[in-house]
Nucleic acid binder design. Structure first.
Lengths: 360, 360
DNA sequence: TTGAAAGCGCTAACAA
DNA sequence: TTGTTAGCGCTTTCAA
């Protein structure tokens, strides 16, 4: 590709005050303030037993020299880095478009900040990312990892295990084959219970033929759980009321069309995500069905930007995603301190609630 | 908030093979394979002058022990980490809903991977994030930083400067007051040239009264540049044909309404982002204007998911965002090697092109 | 081709 | 309250 060089540009960043090529070290600060390295270290780490005047002097020199501790050196002795990795598998694309991840991340960041830890995001996208990320996680860059949206049989959990890196999963991990869960901590929304709430609501509305647009239940636990919740309520639902889609809007629209073709008499549908539900609503409108009069619709996720802007607004299952993020970080940090101390009870399922809007 | 403890949970992650509490070190590998630390180091770093049999033996032990080099220790002597920070302001509003950032990141990650570097994402959100991120960047965790969507007068550039951290900006940085650019490298789309293309296209279509919905030109360089491009072509455009909005869909819709009220006779509009353009199209439809017959519309960004799904599809200015990301990483890595070597010519403006669809 | 030794910048006993 | 010392795990001269 052709590029134009901007005319006004000059040399790259140079040290502001031309002098040092080397970053100042603890030793530099010590010398300049006439105390020992230990004392400077104490000041920098906020230890109490230092004379106030000394503290002040050292602080002056620190900011004068622009000293920032070398975390590598520090980590070498403390075995702590103050950083936590948030690793998101495959979908850099779907991820950023998703307010879900956004809220999750906000919750995580907030809780980590309370512990003075920095969240660093890593993406697993192309195949060779695995090796790099593994080296990164194993290289002592971080004190722990929060792992997301892993595919079934993903080798990351096992890797983290080998590395002895404290790990919490977002969503109950789907392991390969008969592999047992190694007692990994996870945080998950109550997908099954939420789905039950949704379907029970439709039943309470008096609906007789309640269909469902399920997510990719062979690939994601959340989808499988939501479908299970549907069946919990509708024990003998015929198979032709269930249609699988892929958690996309278009997928939801297509699945709805299939359902209508198969069962023109359906009078309600539980759609396993708001995004799919928005697609389903479109199909219903195109087919001339009134919502909720002819067909009642309930979604899942409560992505407000979607649920409030559909026509009619979407009744859906709410998850407190920010709280889920916060809990993940909490679990990790707790673990971090009380390593090997708390046997059992490390995972959390966050309850859902139904938000009634116009569609059901 | 109330949480339910999952019944099936057990103890947290424990080292798979119960044995070592400590991660294996170079020394462990050396001992186990009967060579010196130096030799192991050479093997691990792929240096040539090692006997093949020794290489093999060491490799065996490495994988047997699951050895991963401690990057902290390595960094201490090499001053390199193999990681690059991508720092962005988190505000969900623009960034995350935007495939823009997504593509950018993809380009960055790809190029970084070519150099064997790991991209780590940091977000700036709440005020105290600055201190943490600064410590992180200054702490030697990364070899360089890619900085995004900074507000005018942001102190991050200055901080990076002080830290002597190689830095490349995404978008021409808007500095506070009369502050001169410190010769920071940046990569930007040709906002001004792109806007010219858009407006010239409308002129070529024979439109007489071409309005513009501008972005927040007092806050973002991109918006200011796009507005400048509009004025480049329409030297004497009356002020009432220009309306500022905030880069949101709703903002675009509102601005369009204002323009129509003020100038019912307008026959074309250049909208400074696709998102705003989708809002503008809605307003035009509500006001009964046909597009493009009554009013021709051109957007900016070529966010395909938007531009192809509007009615009619949006004619817009395309930016090669992935390439921009790639270039940023490239600039950084080049700089990283040739420090202080290349005075001048470090920034790049990536050309745009008009993509014709139905709206103009 | 390999090993021994020094040292990167920091913290953590231990002494003073 | 402060300084001295050792050493974290690694790379890198320098010798062998």
């Amino acid at each position: 590709m052709q590029v134009q060089l901007a005319p006004t540009e000059m040399a790259l960043t140079q040290r502001s005050h031309g002098s040092q090529l080397r970053r100042p070290t603890l030793e530099d600060v010590a010398r300049r303030s006439g105390v020992s390295k230990s004392t400077v270290s104490r000041v920098v780490n906020g230890e109490p037993r230092v004379r106030p005047e000394v503290v002040e002097r050292v602080r002056e020199v620190v900011s004068e020299l622009g000293y920032v501790p070398n975390q590598g050196a520090r980590q070498l002795v403390t075995h702590r880095t103050g950083a936590v990795a948030v690793v998101a598998a495959h979908p850099a694309d779907r991820l950023f478009l998703d307010p879900f991840f956004d809220c999750l991340l906000r919750g995580i960041r907030r809780e980590l900040a309370r512990h003075g830890a920095q969240a660093v995001l890593l993406f697993l996208d192309e195949p060779d990312d695995y090796a790099r990320v593994a080296d990164y996680l194993g290289g002592g860059h971080v004190d722990g990892a929060l792992l997301f949206s892993l595919r079934p049989g993903d080798r990351l959990p096992e890797m983290a295990d080998r590395l002895g890196l404290p790990t919490v999963f977002g969503g109950r991990p789907l392991l390969r084959d008969g592999d047992t869960v190694h007692g990994h901590a996870y945080v998950d929304g109550d997908n099954r219970g939420g789905a039950r709430q949704a379907v029970q609501h439709l039943v309470a509305l008096g609906r007789q033929r309640i269909a469902t647009v399920a997510g990719p239940y062979d690939q994601e636990n959340s989808a499988a759980d939501r479908l299970a919740g549907y069946h919990d309520v509708l024990l003998d639902a015929p198979a032709d009321l269930v249609e699988k889609a892929d958690y996309t809007r278009q997928g939801g629209a297509d699945a709805m069309a299939v359902l209508l073709d198969r069962r023109p008499d359906l009078d309600a549908v539980f759609v396993a995500s708001d995004l799919m539900a928005s697609g389903a609503l479109q199909t219903l409108r195109e087919r001339g069905r009134r919502v909720p009069e002819d067909v009642a619709v309930v979604g899942f996720d409560d992505i407000v930007s979607i649920a409030e802007s559909t026509d009619p607004p979407l009744t859906t299952v709410h998850q407190d995603v920010t709280e889920m993020g916060r809990l993940m970080a909490h679990l990790l940090m707790r673990d971090d301190g009380a390593r090997d101390a708390t046997p059992g009870g490390s995972s959390v399922v966050v309850p859902t609630r139904l938000v009634r809007r116009g569609s059901a």
